[in-house]
Nucleic acid binder design. Structure first.
Length: 289
DNA sequence: AAGGGCCTCAACCGCTATAGA
DNA sequence: CTCTATAGCGGTTGAGGCCCT
């Protein structure tokens, strides 16, 4: 099979952009907006292929691009999101305002990957590289587990997850959860319990495993494919595990009432029928949409 | 000062996804 | 439904700068 070349024309320039070329591209986009990359070079008077123009604009010339060093907070977010999504640089970039996928990818490959290795963490699996001899230390009921259960419930009852809340759970950002929680009106105890747990659990601590493939968080179809055959027993067990986890500390979500362990267990004891799960889904007003 | 090795990051390449005819 | 053009993504490359000997 013969591939269609990216740039048909001869005499197309490659390599580093000159400031003159940059100015031409900026001026053209300011006048006509983004898009139409195929025809843009000719119209803008550039001897470049459209793809090259798009990349130059997206990765370097766009006015909203943030320059300079990555902050520790950004580092943290990238590591967490990489554990969650893998090498989905564009998806990761959507969580870092002003940073491009290319920039994040380069930064990961040149800095963060090494840093994780130095800490004894496999940058691909985000698990410790050196075995303790006692088997892998993973948190069954960390935030990843909580989010996984939400996925399973969502897929079973064909509802969509509120991405903001789930993202908050995944990256351990209680502010996101709290904001959405407060905006969604009254939140029942079950929601509060789960959010308290998920927002204050070990989350992305060193021994928390993220090898479960959480890219599915953001597509209900993907979730369904993976979890359609999950039975209620498994769901109930995981939910019970999350809600009864001893390390859970209530009060992680601002403005949420604290929930004590006996409350949780009383709540769980009543969960024996399929429609209890359905009630659970409808009660999680700020998680499911 | 020279040059070799390493690192960074902009840019390219190949592929897939998507829209529209 | 099929085909084609275009956009977008992720992996890879290579120029240039820096550091060390």
């Amino acid at each position: 099979m013969v591939r269609t070349p990216c740039c048909k024309e001869e005499g197309i320039k490659k390599g580093a952009w000159t400031s003159e070329e940059d100015q031409k591209l900026i001026a053209y986009i300011q006048r006509h907006g983004e898009g139409g990359w195929r025809t843009l070079p000719e119209k803008a008077g550039l001897k470049r292929c459209g793809k090259s123009c798009r990349l130059r604009w997206a990765n370097y010339l766009r006015p909203d691009i943030k320059r300079g060093e990555f902050t520790p907070e950004e580092d943290d977010t990238i590591i967490k999101l990489h554990a969650l999504k893998g090498n989905k640089w564009a998806a990761i970039a959507t969580h870092l305002a002003g940073r491009t996928d290319n920039e994040i990818k380069n930064y990961w490959n040149t800095n963060l990957k090494k840093r994780l290795k130095q800490k004894g963490i496999d940058p691909t699996t985000h698990k410790p590289i050196i075995s303790t001899g006692l088997g892998p230390e993973t948190h069954k009921f960390g935030s990843s587990g909580s989010a996984r259960v939400l996925n399973r419930v969502a897929s079973k009852y064909a509802v969509d997850l509120n991405r903001d809340v789930v993202t908050g759970i995944i990256i351990g950002n209680s502010t996101i959860i709290a904001n959405v929680s407060q905006n969604s009106g009254e939140v029942e105890n079950s929601t509060t319990t789960l959010l308290n747990k998920t927002s204050t659990s070990s989350g992305f601590s060193d021994n928390c495993s993220f090898s479960d493939g959480f890219t599915e968080f953001f597509s209900n179809e993907e979730i369904s494919d993976m979890y359609m055959d999950v039975d209620n027993v498994g769901l109930m067990e995981e939910l019970k595990g999350i809600l009864s986890c001893e390390s859970a500390v209530a009060g992680g979500v601002k403005g949420s009432p604290e929930v004590n362990v006996s409350d949780k267990m009383e709540f769980l004891d009543s969960w024996n029928e399929e429609d209890d799960l359905q009630k659970f889904v409808s009660s999680l007003s700020c998680v499911f949409v």
